[in-house]
């Protein structure tokens, strides 16, 4: 993670800067995903309700736990021991799906930023003939001097 940040700040090359941003973000993704891992667990794809309709039948008129029921138990949930916690999931442990969702979103946001950034780099190259920060600053300085 730190290497990515280092690249962003240290390099003067605009493309390399964007690579650094990418590295930095990918590392943050790793932070999120690593905290979602549950030891010995499976990916969060539940085996049980294999077909649509199964759950409706097995759950009856939603007699099983609904969200509201779960919410009523918030204080307990954190205190429950793992065995009983995983009970409704047929005794199978799954890794935490929430960080996965967040990171899916973050990856997409990342590539969107990257696309805009690269488009800008291309235009900067056309306008200045370089993609090195120092050279761009020089060019601006010269333009300023010529103008005044």
């Amino acid at each position: 993670m730190m290497t990515g940040l280092y690249v962003v700040i240290s390099t003067g090359n605009l493309v390399k800067k964007l690579v650094g941003i990418g590295l930095f973000q990918t590392s943050v993704f790793q932070l999120y995903i690593s905290l979602s891992k549950v030891r010995g667990a499976q990916p969060p794809i539940i085996e049980k309700p294999a077909k649509y309709g199964d759950a409706v039948k097995s759950a009856g008129e939603k007699s099983a736990e609904t969200v509201t029921d779960l919410l009523a138990k918030i204080p307990e949930v954190t205190a429950l021991d793992p065995a009983s916690v995983y009970d409704p999931l047929m005794g199978v442990a799954y890794s935490n799906p929430l960080p996965h969702v967040l990171i899916l979103t973050a990856i997409v946001v990342g590539v969107a930023t990257l696309a805009v950034g690269l488009a800008l780099v291309v235009r900067i190259r056309e306008a200045y003939g370089t993609i090195e920060e120092d050279a761009i600053d020089d060019a601006e300085y010269k333009a300023e001097v010529n103008a005044s």
């Binding site: 794809i45 539940i46 309700p49 759950a55 759950a59 736990e65 609904t66 969200v67 779960l70 799906p97």
Partner: peptide, 19 residues
């Protein structure tokens, strides 16, 4: 919350992929 999603998905939405 992460765990709540796992449980709630079974009853609310009933698709295997919780993500």
């Amino acid at each position: 919350v992460g765990l709540m999603y796992l449980k709630a998905t079974i009853t609310d939405i009933s698709i295997p992929n919780v993500v």
